[in-house]
Design a binder for these strands. Structure first.
Lengths: 267, 267
DNA sequence: TATCCTTGTTCCACCAATCGGAACGCTGTC
DNA sequence: GACAGCGTTCCGATTGGTGGAACAAGGATA
């Protein structure tokens, strides 16, 4: 290959190995060496070496029948080390539970990663409502930030500089009946959120899905994450959702920020 | 295949990169290049190349202040791909929830990985009991199989061959007041479990911790996982625990096995 | 302020770890 | 029985990896 690639100072083998790992997905749990080699445009022997390494370390497991590979339990360790490294989790857990008990609703916490939000914690309603809205939203799930309340709640409080970076990379695609697809309108929405302290999502992600979210701050005053509460449209109107739940959501988010060491007045 | 043949046919770089990743732990969330290089006995430049690669791909993030690194949200993707690859999860979720509602207890599902059990799903009691037993037992957590009810429930139904392999690698260390530390006694215990279909843990892992577990079978009739229900000693006696909860636990485990395609009579 | 650490980072010439073609054994299909 | 696909192993050629040296930045000490 050309030495003039943009990859100086990085390890090819490591990148390839990780590329192999991340090829495995919920919908493609079992993959063989040949299939991988075609996908990554590498020889079967090379792929086999990587796969053998991953298997030896427990990150992959070979299915005895089909000889193909699946993710091993070892990768769970990584994921949960990441989760537990965030003290945000420990701090927010009791607050989440309280909010969930009070409102009898499922509530979530997510962080921003690139242009996505990543769920890092959820507390389900003790007594599930009749309308379960579950877009496969487990912890670890990703959604585009621009069409979620949590995403907007975080973006609204980023520095102008960082916001610019993120917005440039957003692909504004319609996802629900009311998705904001115009960057200008989106910016205006963020201004409103910054003023009110609460972000709403009225079927911007999917039909029927309504949600409100508030930002969580770190000790240094930066936005760290967001807290949300989602309900199906058949249960409450948007006005009712805001009126009934917004104060509790804002209060809880603020409590969490406080527990994280945040002292009022974001810089 | 030759035994003790070190690293033929495996990728050194990949192994090292993953070693770096797994150095990050809940209790050591931030690590610098120099610290890593000392721990792995590699030069700082080499470690830096790996770290740069991991950071570029989103598996690590650099803290702007301390210049040290932490796990990035990208590793969550891996962990949750692994979790969602198991259709056991989807299948067992409703059963778990029902059992938890019925018993008002926290119930768990775990699989075997080496000599450990790994929690892959948990359903917490809707109304938490006064005595919360939480040894940091989130999904993804590991415990030694030999001193847990779920571990014993799985081991008891392994083939003699596989059991042999596992037992040889177990380090029988006392963990609670009643830990089984004699391999012979342990084997006898497994025979009992195989006969009764239920595994009990009476303070073998930790003081005060009691638990019962039943095996879950795959379509092919192999043990796949185990389901448990744990309670603190102050709440029920061992007899009461078995009497009151064992039938429901066994029934639920059996329901899950059935949903997985298992048809009666384990081989 | 001047010094001496240590840190993360970059560069580069050397060399060993990695690469991929070829071949093997196996398992299904036609 | 021939064939095609798979996972796996081997080995010589070479490319990607290695680590020492050097740099800038930050902290601590004096």
């Amino acid at each position: 290959m050309r030495p003039s690639e943009g990859s100086t100072g990085t390890s090819q083998s490591l990148a390839r190995g990780l590329a192999i790992l991340s090829t495995f997905h919920s919908d493609r749990p079992l993959i063989g060496v040949s299939e991988l080699s075609r996908g990554l445009e590498l020889s079967r022997s090379t792929v086999h070496r990587y796969v053998a390494t991953l298997a030896k370390l427990g990150y992959l497991q070979q299915d005895p029948d089909s000889k193909r590979y699946r993710l091993g339990p070892k990768v769970l360790d990584l994921g949960f080390s990441a989760l537990n490294s965030m003290d945000l989790l420990e701090v927010s857990a009791p607050h989440l539970r309280r909010l969930s008990d009070e409102t009898q609703r499922t509530v979530n916490v997510a962080i921003l990663d690139g242009t996505d939000v990543v769920y890092i914690e959820r507390c389900r309603a003790a007594r599930p409502g009749q309308q379960q809205i579950d877009l496969n939203l487990h912890v670890g799930a990703r959604l585009p930030a621009y069409c979620t309340a949590m995403g907007k709640a975080i973006l609204a409080f980023l520095s102008e500089e960082r916001l610019e970076e993120v917005i440039e990379r957003i692909d504004f695609v319609p996802r629900g009946p009311n998705t904001l697809t115009d960057p200008k309108a989106f910016r205006e929405e963020l201004v409103k959120i910054r003023a009110s302290g609460i972000a709403i999502n009225d079927e911007e992600l999917a039909y029927g899905l309504r949600s409100i979210a508030a930002p969580i701050y770190s000790q240094s005053g930066d936005v760290l994450a967001a807290l949300n509460l989602a309900i199906h449209r058949t249960i409450v109107s948007m006005e009712e959702l805001v009126e009934r739940f917004a104060p509790a959501v804002i209060q809880t988010a603020s409590d969490i920020s406080l527990s994280m060491g945040h002292r009022l007045a974001p810089a």
